[in-house]
Design a protein around this nucleic acid. Structure first.
Lengths: 204, 204
DNA sequence: GAAACGTTTGACCGGGCGGTCAGGAACACG
DNA sequence: CGTGTTCCTGACCGCCCGGTCAAACGTTTC
């Protein structure tokens, strides 16, 4: 893969600006819905200049996804087999929810990719993602068998955490439309609710 | 709105074929990502013939969304204030999960629309959807106050049901990639898991 | 069978798209 | 200051997209 680090400061700045702009545009319109002109405008650059730094639209998208996947899986990697089970899982929920709060565009970029059949990251899903989940699922299954948490299917537990936390980023518009403008940040209520939900679910 | 019913049988057949094909294509590629040629090919018609039955690409999409929203909200409408609270809510979960099983493309069409900021159904979200949810949230809050179910935020409870059930349709590729091909239908495991989850959450 | 109407299509159009290219501007370094 | 290198851009290209249209084809009706 092309992993040459940017040499000059101007390169770093512009590549960064492009990826930032691309994240905004791709996450809102999806890959096909986004245009290079939009990204260029958002980045404050000309379209040919974009293609000076990246060989193609595809390449920008791929770079974005590759960078995303690492940070996206970190919260799960941090799940400590040696920790207190319920606290560990609640910590995972909180970290994941924090990502929905702090990186909603990353979440939507990912959701867009999966929705469209994951054409560009299918191998990663069946490879890196699957083996990480397998590993952590085994840990959870161990906790379950030892009676330290309630008896739950570890895979569906993980899916539940993903679904419940990412929902607040991906379906943000709907959440806000339903809650109206009065209430405070939906994410605050969500955190209380989810901590309660998983506490009730997991304590034996 | 254009609500003239199709007169002849050939009209009904072709309009239906177009909407069917459009659902397949729109749900996979999103509005901008889909092309009339794709829809026409999927429907087995020529592109100009598509535009004989619908005035524009937009019109096809709108027709699809309008028809979708009704069926999409029916499971929530069926929530009976007079029923037994836990059973009612579990029934809602099951109906919603059945929709993910039977109409995954409808779910993805909806998800695509929300992800992109709901440009075409924002009014409906703040109107029809909000008032329905408000109504049912009041019912659930009543059950909560009466001690017939545990003390939960009714809005976030409803969000949780949406998130957990739709996840299996919208993120189907990811779910299957993680679970591998061995296991049976993910939806079977999901149903057991979700029934357990909501039983634990809701019983006082 | 001919008129009248509903249905289908090939050919076409203007605009927007991803991408190219030749050359100019800005900078680094002696 | 000169020169090599990096950075940037206007103009352009070919393709694809949504949509149009005139004409042909089918079907019904009398």
């Amino acid at each position: 893969m092309t992993s040459e680090r940017p040499r000059t400061r101007i390169q770093r700045r512009n590549r960064h600006a492009i990826l930032d702009a691309a994240l905004v545009v791709f996450s809102q319109h999806g890959f096909r819905g986004a245009t290079l002109d939009q990204i260029a405008a958002e980045a404050g650059l000309s379209k040919p200049n974009l293609l000076y730094y990246f060989p193609s639209k595809e390449a920008i998208h791929e770079t974005l996804l590759a960078g995303l996947l690492k940070t996206w899986l970190d919260p799960l990697r941090a799940l400590d087999p040696a920790g207190e089970p319920v606290a560990e899982l609640l910590g995972y929920v909180r970290r994941k929810l924090a990502m929905s709060r702090d990186f909603p565009r990353e979440s939507r970029l990912f959701a867009n990719e999966i929705l469209q059949g994951a054409p560009r990251i299918a191998p990663t899903l069946g490879g890196e993602l699957k083996s990480l989940v397998d590993e952590k699922a085994a840990v959870i299954a161990g906790w379950s068998a030892a009676g330290r948490i309630a008896d739950v299917d570890p895979y569906h537990l993980i899916f539940s955490i993903w679904a419940l936390t990412q929902h607040y980023a991906d379906f943000d518009v709907q959440v806000r439309a339903v809650l109206g403008e009065e209430r405070g940040d939906p994410l605050d209520g969500a955190e209380r609710h989810l901590v309660m939900l998983f506490t009730r679910l997991l304590t034996p």
